[in-house]
Design a binder for these strands. Structure first.
Length: 239
DNA sequence: CCATTAATTACGA
DNA sequence: TCGTAATTAATGG
């Protein structure tokens, strides 16, 4: 809960961590080196906030491993998850949105590893590193688009369709192929899913039980596997 | 073992 | 569809 001593032990970060990630892929080794030397590396355990909505945006982050969910608290106090972000993306990029506070809270959905830099370096990165700006704005655009489709879904679709959609999106973005299906590769509860679809854990539980009986999905505690994605897609369309 | 947390189900607003 | 609550199951000391 407090700052453990910044590890001096940290062996110099390997350049290959960043070279293949979009915002940095056009940079040469020397530039990557400079960026890494300014970065702080930190591990986060599951379920903690990397940064919180409304707080001064002091740093921005590159998620190297794990998953985070982006969460907002409504005026009435409930949590609404707006999206999940997989490893390899920048988060906490308030500056790209012209803000000086974080617009949402980032909660680790699994164990995570992230690099971070002080926000004052943002302008430097944008100005000096080829491709950094265009790539990050590209992902910002994608995220905004995703949030929009979610809002449309919430307004136009039935609960069953929303939940089916949410699961499909999760397996598309963060799914892992397993023997007889695709599994969401971080722990996710009914509660989490309900926060993602603006419903209750009970409704989610019932839907999943029903789908499981029909062989569309399989789930154990905190684990959801989709056996028949196509059938799920059908559910999101007709019904 | 126990304590804690997740998931299921029935029932009523 | 949602919320309450009772019950059962799984997990981690």
């Amino acid at each position: 809960m407090e700052d453990q001593a910044p590890r001096k032990v940290l062996p110099r970060l390997d350049e290959s961590l960043l070279t293949h990630l979009p915002p940095f892929s056009k940079l040469d080794k020397r530039q990557i080196r400079t960026i890494l030397d300014q970065a702080t590396s930190r591990r986060y355990e599951t379920g903690i906030a990397i940064f919180e909505e409304g707080h001064a945006a002091e740093r921005f982050y590159m998620l190297l491993d794990g998953y985070v969910r982006v969460v907002r608290i409504t005026p009435t106090g409930e949590q609404v998850t707006s999206l999940h972000i997989p490893a390899g993306q920048l988060i906490g990029i308030a500056r790209a949105l012209g803000r000086d506070t974080y617009p949402a809270t980032a909660i680790t959905a699994a164990e995570c590893l992230a690099l971070s830099w002080p926000m004052r370096l943002w302008d430097t990165f944008v100005a000096e590193y080829d491709g950094f700006a265009t790539e990050t704005y590209k992902t910002v655009g994608l995220r905004v688009g995703e949030m929009n489709t979610r809002i449309v879904e919430m307004a136009t679709q039935q609960v069953e369709q929303r939940v089916a959609n949410a699961i499909l999106r999760l397996i598309n973005q963060t799914g892992r192929k397993v023997a007889d299906g695709i599994e969401i590769d971080f722990p996710i509860t009914r509660q989490d899913l309900s926060e993602l679809t603006a419903t209750t854990l009970h409704t989610v539980s019932r839907l999943l039980s029903g789908w499981e009986k029909k062989g569309l999905v399989e789930s154990k505690r905190k684990r959801i596997k989709v056996c028949d994605p196509h059938a799920l897609v059908m559910l999101t369309q007709g019904a």
